[in-house]
């Protein structure tokens, strides 16, 4: 049973990773990469590494996504200043 769930997660993760690489908008790329981390943390859990899963969920899906978004916001602020 778990193998089917895991396969499904792998497929979804690969698709999300492709979205993150090919999307034109940076925001959607960041969010897709956050979901990649979430899926990978699920896979770690199935591979019996719960501690790695916790770390991946907290850092990969939570903190680094937030930091990327903050950085993106700052970059956009700088761009609009240059245009003015």
């Amino acid at each position: 049973m778990i193998i089917y769930v895991a396969t499904l997660i792998v497929i979804v993760v690969i698709m999300l990773a492709l979205i993150a690489v090919f999307s034109k908008k940076l925001l959607s790329a960041i969010i897709a990469s956050g979901f990649v981390s979430l899926g990978v943390s699920g896979l770690f859990f199935f591979l019996q590494a719960p501690d790695v899963a916790i770390t991946e969920a907290a850092i990969g899906a939570g903190l680094s996504t937030a930091i990327f978004i903050i950085a993106l916001k700052k970059v956009k602020k700088g761009e609009s200043k240059d245009e003015e």
Binding site: P50, D51, I54, T55, A58, I59, G62, L63
Partner: peptide, 14 residues
């Protein structure tokens, strides 16, 4: 239990 310093610290930071 599973976990440790790194996950704990990351949870606090979040």
């Amino acid at each position: 239990t599973p976990g440790g310093g790194f996950p704990g610290g990351a949870v606090i930071a979040s």
